[in-house]
Computed example of a mutant assay.
Amino acid sequence: MNNYIKEAILARANEVIQLRRKLHSEPELSWEEVKTTEFIANYLEDLQVPYRRMKPTGIVAEITGGKPGKKVALRADIDALPVEELNTELSYASQVEGKMHACGHDAHTAMLLVAADVLNSMKEELSGSVRLIFQPAEEAARGALAMVEQGAMTEVDHVFGIHIWSQMETNKIACTAGPQFASADIFHVAFQGQGGHGAIPHDCIDATVMASSFVLNLQSIVSRTIDPQQGAVVTVGKLESGTRFNVIAENAKLEGTVRCFEPAVRDHIEEQLSHYANHVAGLYGGKAVVEYTRGTQAVINHEESAALVQEVAVDCFGPDVLFDEKPTMGGEDFSFYLDYAPGSFALVGSGNKDKDTEWAHHHGRFNIDEDALVTGAELYAQFAWSYLLKV
Rank of each mutant, 00 (worst) to 15 (best):
residue 10 L to P: 04
residue 19 L to R: 03
residue 29 L to Y: 00
residue 31 W to M: 11
residue 41 A to V: 13
residue 46 D to E: 13
residue 52 R to Y: 14
residue 54 M to F: 08
residue 56 P to I: 05
residue 60 V to Y: 06
residue 61 A to L: 06
residue 61 A to W: 00
residue 63 I to M: 01
residue 66 G to W: 00
residue 70 K to Q: 11
residue 70 K to S: 08
residue 78 I to K: 02
residue 81 L to C: 14
residue 96 V to S: 12
residue 107 A to C: 15
residue 116 A to H: 02
residue 120 N to H: 07
residue 121 S to A: 07
residue 123 K to W: 02
residue 123 K to L: 01
residue 130 V to K: 02
residue 134 F to C: 02
residue 136 P to C: 04
residue 139 E to I: 01
residue 141 A to F: 07
residue 142 R to M: 11
residue 144 A to H: 13
residue 145 L to M: 14
residue 146 A to C: 14
residue 146 A to T: 14
residue 150 Q to S: 10
residue 151 G to N: 09
residue 151 G to D: 06
residue 153 M to E: 08
residue 161 G to Y: 02
residue 162 I to E: 05
residue 168 M to V: 03
residue 168 M to C: 05
residue 177 A to S: 02
residue 182 A to H: 09
residue 185 D to S: 04
residue 186 I to F: 11
residue 186 I to V: 15
residue 186 I to K: 13
residue 195 G to T: 03
residue 198 G to Y: 00
residue 207 A to H: 02
residue 212 S to H: 06
residue 213 S to I: 09
residue 216 L to V: 15
residue 228 P to Y: 02
residue 231 G to L: 14
residue 234 V to M: 07
residue 236 V to L: 04
residue 239 L to H: 00
residue 239 L to M: 11
residue 248 I to L: 04
residue 254 L to C: 02
residue 254 L to G: 06
residue 261 F to C: 03
residue 263 P to Q: 09
residue 264 A to C: 11
residue 265 V to L: 05
residue 266 R to P: 14
residue 270 E to C: 14
residue 271 E to I: 09
residue 274 S to D: 09
residue 281 A to C: 04
residue 282 G to S: 08
residue 290 V to N: 06
residue 296 T to D: 12
residue 305 S to T: 08
residue 305 S to Y: 08
residue 305 S to F: 07
residue 308 L to Q: 01
residue 309 V to S: 12
residue 311 E to S: 14
residue 317 F to P: 00
residue 318 G to K: 08
residue 325 E to L: 13
residue 328 T to S: 12
residue 337 Y to G: 09
residue 340 Y to G: 13
residue 343 G to W: 00
residue 343 G to H: 11
residue 351 G to T: 07
residue 364 G to H: 01
residue 382 Q to H: 01
residue 387 Y to S: 03
residue 389 L to A: 12
residue 390 K to H: 14
residue 390 K to D: 11
residue 390 K to E: 11
residue 391 V to F: 09
